[in-house]
Amino acid sequence: MGGALTLTLAALAYPSMLGVSNVTTAQDRVIATTQWGPLTELDRDFVVKVRAAGLWEYPVGQIGLKKGTSKAVLTASEHLIDGHAALDTTCRKIAPMLNITLPNVASPQQIGFVNTLNAESGEKFDSDFANILRITHGSIFNTIAKVRSTTKNSLVRALADQANNTVLDHITVMEKTGLVDFDTALFTQTTPPKLPKSDLTPPPPSAGQPEVVLTPPPTATSTPVDISGAVNANPGPTVG
């Protein structure tokens, strides 16, 4: 694959699809005690940025349905829309339960992904679409594993389970396009550029702004996680 694509991916790629660049001691700090278990900074960031991921990948899926030139790219686009609509429903369900404010706009870097792909067409679009999304999804695995293995909050665990399944599905459909440059993907995932936090952080919603809803497609096969079990998993104090 050409050097131009490598430079594009190096400029766009980042440590985690969710924007959590490093797991630090501060992120393990408990910020709220809830009836579903303690909520840490990492837990809160995870919920916020799962939402943010959908705010750029859902529209990229819509772009892919219009611009994709192969059946595999069209299929991958359908999976992006389907999977992130379901994740978004879960995020919007559990966020008010945990007193978490969700963004209505993706991070500046994520918007850059959308703008880059929106400006492309033909084979270049197909190639950059598959590689950018394979890299970002590949990078998220460790973050999801960290959250899933350390969180004591049953709602966050349920979201992590759903996110893991969705990310694995999206990795798989990107690889099935036959366009992924695995050497470039591995290099970019393991040596991401250092970006300012402002580039990785979605802005808070404006006061009075209606909540953006990612609508499931008519043919949706992904479903939001059933949180009924999670709700009863950690009986304890109410939010304090």
Score class of each variant (00 low, 15 high):
residue 118 N to C: 01
residue 81 I to M: 06
residue 109 Q to E: 00
residue 73 V to A: 01
residue 21 S to K: 10
residue 178 G to Y: 05
residue 201 T to A: 12
residue 49 K to A: 02
residue 9 L to N: 06
residue 196 P to C: 08
residue 147 V to A: 10
residue 80 L to D: 04
residue 222 S to K: 05
residue 70 S to T: 03
residue 174 M to K: 09
residue 106 A to G: 07
residue 76 A to H: 01
residue 92 R to W: 05
residue 163 A to F: 10
residue 194 K to M: 12
residue 137 H to W: 04
residue 95 A to H: 09
residue 179 L to A: 08
residue 93 K to S: 09
residue 45 D to A: 13
residue 166 T to I: 15
residue 111 I to L: 15
residue 92 R to F: 05
residue 77 S to F: 06
residue 195 L to V: 07
residue 64 G to W: 06
residue 117 L to Q: 02
residue 183 D to W: 02
residue 97 M to D: 07
residue 1 M to Y: 13
residue 119 A to W: 01
residue 29 R to K: 13
residue 86 A to G: 03
residue 152 K to Q: 15
residue 46 F to K: 08
residue 72 A to N: 00
residue 236 G to Y: 03
residue 194 K to I: 09
residue 210 P to T: 11
residue 93 K to G: 00
residue 16 S to K: 01
residue 151 T to A: 12
residue 235 P to L: 14
residue 231 V to M: 15
residue 4 A to N: 12
residue 36 W to Y: 15
residue 221 T to Y: 03
residue 69 T to A: 11
residue 44 R to I: 04
residue 188 T to Y: 00
residue 229 G to Y: 03
residue 89 T to F: 06
residue 118 N to M: 08
residue 106 A to S: 14
residue 37 G to N: 10
residue 228 S to V: 03
residue 152 K to M: 13
residue 162 Q to V: 09
residue 133 L to S: 04
residue 136 T to Y: 00
residue 184 T to I: 09
residue 79 H to N: 08
residue 43 D to R: 09
residue 13 A to I: 02
residue 58 Y to C: 13
residue 119 A to E: 06
residue 162 Q to F: 06
residue 78 E to W: 01
residue 229 G to P: 01
residue 217 P to T: 09
residue 130 A to S: 08
residue 170 H to G: 00
residue 7 L to Q: 15
residue 68 G to I: 02
